[in-house]
Amino acid sequence: MRYHHLYSDDQGESRWQEVGIHLTERVFAPPAQGILVSEPEAAHSVVFLRLPAGWDEPAHTSPIRQLLICLKGRVCVTASDGDTREIAQGDIWRMEDLTGKGHHTRVIGTEDFEAAIVQFA
């Protein structure tokens, strides 16, 4: 498992990196057998969003540390350094570019983009 991580460097540029999710076998839901699971991380809230087909926004920073899980549709996200990622159904995008130049997002194709967002404390 992996996620797309967007962060701000010391010069204010937003940059991408691919991050692998470390899983360890443990009993997660007793009495079920052990399964591979990541370490828990405290969350503040969960929101759902829909961006209509054709949606195109100006560049901005992430308002809070958050993790987006794409449920439907596709977006193209461009970091301020020019590197892009396409986020599609099943992809995970961790947003931590809280300062600097931010990123630009636009919906690709004719389908609306739908996602669940976990916001961290």
Rank of each mutant, 00 (worst) to 15 (best):
L36W: 13
E57L: 15
L51V: 04
F28V: 15
A79D: 04
T61V: 15
C70N: 10
V19S: 01
K101V: 04
L51M: 14
A88F: 00
I64Y: 07
I64L: 11
H5N: 08
H104T: 15
F120K: 04
T110D: 13
G20E: 14
Q66H: 11
V118Y: 06
A121Y: 08
I64R: 13
A88Q: 03
V47L: 15
A116P: 01
R2V: 11
L36F: 15
D10E: 13
G12N: 08
P58W: 06
E13Y: 04
G100K: 05
H44N: 12
F28Q: 13
A29S: 11
C76K: 11
P31K: 07
Q17Y: 04
I21Y: 03
G90Q: 01
Q17W: 01
E13Q: 14
V46N: 06
G102I: 10
Y7I: 05
Q11F: 04
Q119V: 14
F28Y: 11
D81L: 05
V37A: 13
E39F: 00
D9C: 04
R65K: 12
G73Q: 01
R65I: 11
V77H: 00
D112H: 07
L6T: 08
P58F: 07
P63F: 05
W93D: 02
V107E: 04
S14R: 02
V75A: 00
E114I: 03
E57G: 15
C70L: 08
E41Q: 12
A79R: 01
A88Y: 01
H104E: 11
S8H: 07
H104R: 15
V77G: 00
H103I: 13
V118S: 02
G82R: 07
F120W: 08
S38H: 13
R74V: 04
R26F: 05
A115C: 03
